[in-house]
């Protein structure tokens, strides 16, 4: 298993996540897609860390996971707030935050 395989998988996961963010019309799915993208990046970090024989990749992965957890908590709280407000989870329903 060369690093290429890991990177291809990472790229695929990232694309899946990005596609999810752009295509799905559900805020919770959007959050999930973001998590997939983050994990794709994590995978790339770990792969590089192993390739270079350092622990840096693993350390930064833990950072990303921590931040992702916090982000998920805040994001879900916002989603609940938004749902209570508009009875909808469609992001297109929340476009009033502009000039």
């Amino acid at each position: 298993m060369s690093i290429g395989h890991y990177l291809v998988l990472s790229g695929l996961l990232f694309s899946v996540g990005a596609a999810g963010v752009f295509l799905r019309r559900n805020l919770i799915t959007l959050l999930l897609s973001v998590e997939i993208m983050l994990n794709a990046v994590n995978l790339a970090f770990v792969a590089f860390g192993r390739q270079l024989g350092t622990v840096d990749g693993q350390i930064i992965t833990f950072f990303v996971m921590t931040v992702a957890a916090a982000e998920a908590a805040v994001g879900l709280a916002l989603v609940i707030g938004l749902f209570r407000h508009r009875e909808s989870l469609n992001p297109e329903a929340f476009t009033s935050l502009k000039w």
Binding site: F22, P91, F94, T95, L97, K98
Partner: peptide, 17 residues
């Protein structure tokens, strides 16, 4: 320029991406 600010999260995300 005001037309660029749609309020839609997805268009912002698309722009960033």
């Amino acid at each position: 320029l005001r037309l660029l600010q749609t309020g839609s999260v997805k268009s912002y995300a698309a722009g960033t991406f």
